[in-house]
Simulated assay, not measured.
Amino acid sequence: MRGREVPGGQWREEESWETNMRMEHVWVCVAVVVLAPGLLGSRWDQLNLHPDHMPYILANDHDLAEECRVSRTCPFKKHLNQPVCWGYERGCEATETYSNMSCPGDARGWVTTKEEQLSTFFRQADFGFVQEQLSEMRMYCTPQHPGDSWLECSDHLRFCQGNNIYIDFRPLKHRKEPVHYHIDVLDHGQVGGHCSLDENRLKSNSDQISALQSWGPELRHFVELDERVWRRAEMCDLWIESPTYLMKIDATVNMYHHFCDFLNLYASQHLNSTHHSTFFLDNQIIIWETLPYWSNFGAAFEAFTKNRLWNLNDVAGKRVCFKRVVFPTTATHDLRPLLQHSHRVGV
């Protein structure tokens, strides 16, 4: 503290001067943070993507593109304002798409024209699948007020996502057998949200009830809740702020089957691309099993998250509330045959 105690309040004046200087310093710091987003660069470090993908990411995320434009440290400025698209966006021209499919061979017996061959293969094995799923997305539980829950899904509950969703995992604590390919993890009322539920739509789409076919076995039990789902709600033993992916997985010892899981997760990132943090690594993945996860191919998860993988043991015995949750597509588990004589997909 500056000065000395003398009559006339000189001490107080110098103390006030020093306090004002500290306050000015604080306001300068605040101004730097507000006016220079991304200045520290940590946000860009979270985008663990191939440089070839960046023009497409920035073309789809206008908020992220603007943040990069005004940031002093964004390393992706050269990728801004490029006329490109993945292939599933509205108005995406064939000359701008990421995919570069090739179908040089004949596919008679499957299709009748070359155009049909290309479009069928695009829908089966490329971003056309994402486009198809996006066209099916419907609201299943609609928010009525700001801060309410919501849940939207594609047909047959093959892919779903929502905000402020509640799941009661307390019964898992007393379960004797491990959860692996089980369809009875949740029961009526153990999953829900504070929103207006379309019960008829939910019932009519809860028609694919097997382990890896859809999220029907779980979300058919979705109910409206009287209480809002938020951080301080009494019902929430655990609140998860980070975007969370609940993953059903296949045989982890088999490269073919397990990479179906990773393809499903990657496709789900694109289906979830309206969320600003879709391709960032600060998210939580919860494997829908109680068996400890192990695989020779587990390093592939590092492309999706920087955090430790959880499984259902990490939430057993708790009522968990998710700020943002994704139920990834299980589409590649269908093992459908692809069109002959076609290759080179973008996915």
Rank of each mutant, 00 (worst) to 15 (best):
G91W: 09
H25F: 06
I57V: 10
C29E: 15
T112C: 04
T120N: 04
G38C: 00
A31S: 13
G109A: 01
D61E: 11
A31E: 15
N100G: 04
L58V: 01
Y88Q: 04
W44A: 00
H62S: 09
C29A: 09
N81R: 10
R69E: 15
M23D: 14
L40R: 07
Q82D: 10
S71D: 10
V111S: 02
Y88T: 01
Q82P: 04
R69Q: 14
P83I: 13
V28A: 03
S99M: 05
K77W: 06
Y88R: 05
N100Q: 11
P83Q: 07
E116T: 05
R22T: 02
W44H: 04
V34K: 12
K114F: 14
D61M: 06
T113W: 13
V33D: 14
S102I: 03
Y98M: 09
E115I: 12
Q82R: 15
P51I: 00
T97E: 15
F76G: 03
G109H: 02
H62V: 05
D63E: 12
E96Y: 13
E89D: 00
C85I: 03
E116R: 15
A59D: 10
A36H: 10
S42D: 12
T112F: 11
L39E: 11
C85R: 07
R72E: 14
M101P: 10
C103T: 06
E66Y: 15
R108P: 02
R22Y: 01
A31H: 13
T73N: 13
G105W: 14
E115Y: 15
C68N: 04
S71T: 03
A59R: 12
N100F: 05
W86E: 05
D63M: 09
G109F: 04
V70W: 07
Y98R: 10
C103I: 02
Q124W: 02
A59L: 01
L40K: 09
F76T: 04
C92V: 06
H50D: 14
D61T: 02
A107H: 06
Y98T: 06
M21A: 14
R72M: 12
Y88N: 01
F121I: 02
F76L: 05
W86Y: 12
D45P: 00
P104Y: 11
V34S: 09
D63F: 03
L80I: 05
Q46H: 09
N100H: 12
L58S: 00
V26F: 09
R108V: 07
L118Y: 15
N60D: 08
T113Y: 13
F121A: 01
C68R: 05
F76Y: 15
T73Q: 11
R108Q: 15
H53G: 00
M101S: 00
G38Y: 11
K77P: 01
T97C: 08
K78R: 15
G38Q: 03
N81D: 15
P55I: 00
M23G: 03
